[in-house]
């Protein structure tokens, strides 16, 4: 899929992918170890991981309370009209 070699310890591209997985599920020992090692010396990926957590929490907050996810009353009224017209045909 990707062109670069998967080295050890993981490069930033691989480490950030592991960081993404880490936000959602448990990593294998090898993955956890590789990520941990990388984070020891890479401040950018440390930031990515920290900011990723902030983004995840904020995204959840935002989407759970998103008002754009409610239908206009007008649209619903229109649908009711269309449906009742079809039934009465």
């Amino acid at each position: 899929m990707d062109t670069h070699k998967h080295g050890w310890p993981p490069c930033c591209k691989d480490a950030t992918l592991l960081a993404e997985k880490r936000l959602q599920e448990k990593l294998s020992f090898r993955e956890r170890f590789g990520l941990g090692l990388h984070l020891l010396y890479c401040k950018y990926c440390r930031r990515f991981m920290k900011q990723g957590r902030i983004i995840a929490a904020a995204t959840e907050q935002l989407l759970q309370h998103d008002e754009s996810l409610t239908l206009d009353a007008q649209v619903k009224a229109e649908w009711e009209l269309i449906i009742s017209q079809k039934i009465d045909l």
Binding site: C11, Y44, Q51
Partner: peptide
């Protein structure tokens, strides 16, 4: 190409 952050994309 080595999988390192590009300078302009590295998290601040």
């Amino acid at each position: 190409e080595k999988g390192h952050w590009r300078k302009e994309a590295a998290p601040q």
